[in-house]
Simulated scan of single mutants.
Amino acid sequence: MLSDADVAALYDVLSPWNPALSPGDRFYDTWVMAAGSVLDVGCGTGAMLTLAREQGHRGRLVGLDPDRAALDRARRRSDVDWVEGTAAGATADARFDLAIMTGHAFQCLVTDDALRSSLAAIHAALRGGGHFVFETRHPQARAWEDWNPSNAVGVVAPVAGTDRALRVWHEVESVAADVVTFAGTAADPDGTVLHTDRSVLRFLAPAPLNARLADAGFEIGAQYGDWDRGPLTGTSREIVTVARRR
């Protein structure tokens, strides 16, 4: 079986942070490097803020995440503040220039109460005019239809200090209105299951998404359908949002 630490290490293999190769990572990196202070909500293993420091960012960097094993990996970098907690627990007195949620973490805010409390906390953590930048999958693209065992990927990941070949796949369990429940599985190449995580994501369309941002005190500065800042269209797979604190 995989330990929590193994799962955190596997995440870094599956989702490497590389602005040189990934348009999405490059989009966020530009925002981070231009901001004096940054709150990374759902920072995971901290790759984005770690790279920012390596690139010479001198301002305050804070990573917030409820996953202790992920934060243990993040804390290998000691010149970033790593805080265990949820978006709803974001500090209200820091006055950050920028708050960011990457990796579709915004979709983990499934209930109306979670959305309301999280957006309120992020709003309170920003200075006046500060920005909240995040992306969410556009429901029209029905991304979950590709989450099935036939799309399993093979990876080599550090497990208990030794590189090990694994197969990783996702499988949808239910789709109810705008909420999708699915399982993520890591297994040995022979199919022996080592770890299964169940996740629930919410797929908000632009209109209800923007209404909730407005209710929380944000105005939309820009909204894109791709990482090249193209407009939202009938074929967009992403909703990339730049919101400003009123």
Rank of each mutant, 00 (worst) to 15 (best):
A160M: 05
A177Y: 12
P158C: 00
T162R: 12
D163Y: 09
S150T: 11
G154Q: 09
H138E: 07
A152W: 12
D146L: 14
F132N: 08
E145Q: 11
N148H: 15
V156C: 06
P149F: 14
G154K: 04
P139Y: 13
F132A: 01
W169I: 00
G128Q: 10
R127I: 09
D178L: 02
G130S: 01
D178T: 02
R164P: 05
A160L: 07
S174C: 04
L166S: 03
V168N: 00
D146G: 13
F182C: 07
A165R: 11
H131V: 03
N148K: 11
T136E: 02
E171V: 00
N151W: 13
W144K: 01
Q140P: 03
A177S: 12
P158T: 00
V133D: 04
V159A: 01
A143P: 06
V172F: 14
V156K: 03
P139G: 07
A143H: 13
F134L: 04
H138D: 09
P158G: 03
H170I: 00
W144P: 03
E171G: 03
Q140D: 12
W144R: 02
F134P: 10
W169G: 01
E171T: 00
V155Q: 12
A160D: 15
E145T: 14
R164M: 10
E173S: 09
G154C: 03
V168Y: 05
L166I: 07
H131Y: 06
W147G: 03
V172Q: 08
W169R: 02
L126A: 01
G129M: 11
H138Q: 06
R127F: 09
F182G: 07
V175H: 11
G128F: 02
V159Y: 08
A143R: 15
A183N: 02
G161Y: 08
V172M: 10
G129L: 14
H131R: 15
T181V: 15
H170R: 15
V159P: 10
T136F: 12
T136D: 03
G129H: 13
T181F: 09
G154H: 13
F134T: 08
V168P: 04
E145I: 11
V159H: 09
W147E: 08
D163E: 11
F134C: 03
G130W: 08
V159L: 12
W144C: 04
Q140F: 05
W144F: 14
L126T: 07
A157K: 02
A143D: 14
F134W: 12
W144T: 00
V155T: 12
D163L: 13
A160C: 07
R142Y: 13
F132I: 08
V180Y: 14
A141E: 02
A141V: 05
P139D: 10
A143L: 15
V133C: 06
R127C: 09
V172D: 09
